[in-house]
Every structure is written in C-alpha cells, then in structure tokens.
Design a binder for these strands. Structure first.
Lengths: 169, 169
DNA sequence: CACAATTCAATTGCGTACAACTAAATGGCC
DNA sequence: GGCCATTTAGTTGTACGCAATTGAATTGTG
C-alpha cells in the first residue's frame, strides 16, 4: 500500500454541519432497517445452526411447509426473490436432501419444488425457532404485529415508488 | 434434471395447520424487515444511479462526510461492518476516485480513509437524496423517527441476545 | 531487551441479491 | 401448421455480508 507518505489530513472534514443535517447516518431510516435486518441475521445464524440451513433457506422452507409443492415462480412471488437468487439456493437445499425439484409435466418451462420426507420432517424441529427468535427480540406479540404492519406499509410504498421511477425513463 | 418422472405430489402438504401457525411466513417479523430493507435497496439503486455508487457505498460516504478522515476500524463501528466487507468496498470507492486510503504514520496497522476533493464535492449532489427517499416512503418525519427508534431498540436487543448465545458455548 | 498476547487490515470462501442475458417451451394469431 | 411475443429457469457477472484465517505492527510483561 504505502500511498506515498502524506502528512496529516486529506480534506477538510465538513466544518459545522447545520443542526438538521439530512445526511447524518443516524437520521437514515434505511440504515436502522438494514442494521436490524442484519442483527436478525446474526440471531438466526445461531438458532438455525441446529437445522444446518441459512436464514434465506429457512424462509424457503417456511413457504414449502405452508403451501406444499410450488413452482419456482410462485416461490419467488411469496419471497420477493427471482430465479437468479432461488436457483442456486434451491440446488443447495436439494443437495442437503431437503427439497426435490422436477420439471412440471404440464408445462416443461416450470420447475416444481417440493419437500422430501426429510424436509417435511424438519418442520417439527423448526417449531422451536420462532419462540427462540421472539424471545431474542424482547418485544411482545402486539409490538411485533404493530411493527410488522408498519414495515409492510413501508415496503408497499417503496415498491410503488420504484415502479414509478422506473417507468419515468 | 428430469429427476425420473414422478406422478403428482411429492409429500403431503401440511394437512391442517393450527389457526395460530408460528411458522407462517407472514407471521415472521424478520421477513417484513428483510423485505423492507430490500425494497429500500431498490429505491436507492435508482436514486443513487446519478451518483454512480451503491447503497452501502453511500453509507460509507455519509460517515466520511460527517466525521472526516477515519480509520477502517472506526468506519466499521459506525456501520456495523467488518474489514471483510469494507476492504473491497473501499477499494472500489478508491478506484472511483472518491476516497483515499493510506497507512497511518503513527500506527502502521491502521489504514486511514479520507475523502478526495471529488468525494467531498459529491456531498452537494447527495443533499437531494434524502428528500427523494423520504418522498418514496410516504411517511412523515415523525413516523420515520418513531419507526427508527423502534428498530434501534430491536437491533440492541438482538445484538445482546446474539452475544449471550455465543458466550453459552 | 525479549516474547507472548493482542490489534488491525486484508484475504479467502461461501451464500445471498439482483441486473442482464440465454434458451427452451408455450400461447396466440394469421 | 408456421411464426412471433411471452413466460419460465437457469447462467453470468458484480457487489455485499460475514466467518475464519493470515500477516504485520503494537502493547504488555517480566
């Protein structure tokens, strides 16, 4: 590295930001959101170690436990994920023996994803997960519900805004 | 693929889940959180295209605009990120001409990250970003603040829980 | 001063995310 | 039936995020 020795500073650090500085990190809702999301990731990593799957893989299993066999497309709609993310993820779940993938007979473009016996059996063990996670948040059920609905509102608004901007071009 | 032809279903889709099914996707706060975080990502991707940086890179710039020159370690503390994430990210910002990295003279282990003139100048253009993002959320300032503090509580609780579990082993 | 423990950035390896593209299959439409 | 737009997974390339490791520099202790 070394970057040829340089004395002291490189640039004037913003002299005196106004009291309402819209660029302050702690003002950014997105940062709090991102941080909370990653903090959850940390807890799930610990809790899911028993099951040997990652958090996104756990989400896929949730959908399959709830809905049974499903084409990749539908899976992606439930999870907000596209095939670029799901294809390799599903291959890993398949390699782990938890799901099975097969071309649909009626529509050869579609791939149906279903649980193996082992994947189905994991549901029992997974029942302990939500309680452990819930305990880690320190929030009660009503607080969680409230926060959840707020976040879902936010997501809807953001999705709508993204589509608007995309269509402006 | 082909998976040797298989007729109909693969596994019994859970027969009749109890009314309070803790494994339902829409019950998971983490999913709402994750979805909101990625929805933000989408909006930022559009808004930040003008500046030619990604959202995590924008967060780094926020910290540098606010605090001026900083060692990688401190940057990571502000952002909850480690060198595994920051090192390559900072190299990209350096390649883009926005930041400069140099070994500290006092402590050769440490690398000081500072803004270039170009990086400092970008601050002006970035002032438009928070307003555009805020508009996209459809939330007013108080709602945002409320949500932010809730999320920060959540993050603290989750971090504490992660540390507890880690120390249990 | 010597030497072990610690600190710090970088690297490696793995697993998401997502845009852009490819290729196969399907469904109108003439 | 032949043809074209659309749908669907998969692949490629780029960029996080994080655990684990490496290697250099520093600090604490005798």
């Amino acid at each position: 590295m070394a970057c040829k020795g340089y004395p002291g500073r490189m640039t004037t650090p913003t002299p005196t930001p106004p009291t309402t500085d819209w660029l302050r990190l702690d003002q950014q809702i997105c940062f709090s959101l991102n941080a909370a999301s990653r903090a959850f990731g940390g807890v799930y990593r610990v809790v899911l170690k028993d099951l040997g799957i990652t958090y996104p893989q756990y989400l896929v299993m949730l959908v399959l436990w709830e809905h049974g066999e499903l084409p990749v497309k539908k899976l992606g709609e439930h999870l907000r994920l596209d095939s670029g993310t799901l294809s390799p993820l599903l291959k890993r779940l398949e390699a782990a023996g938890l799901v099975r993938r097969e071309r649909s007979a009626r529509d050869e473009r579609s791939v149906e994803v279903g649980l193996t016996d082992e994947g189905d059996a994991m549901r029992e063990r997974a029942l302990a997960v939500p309680r452990r996670i819930s305990a880690a948040t320190g929030f009660d059920v009503d607080e969680i519900r409230e926060l959840r609905s707020r976040l879902d509102e936010l997501t809807s608004a953001l999705d709508a805004a993204t589509l608007e901007r995309a269509s402006e071009e």
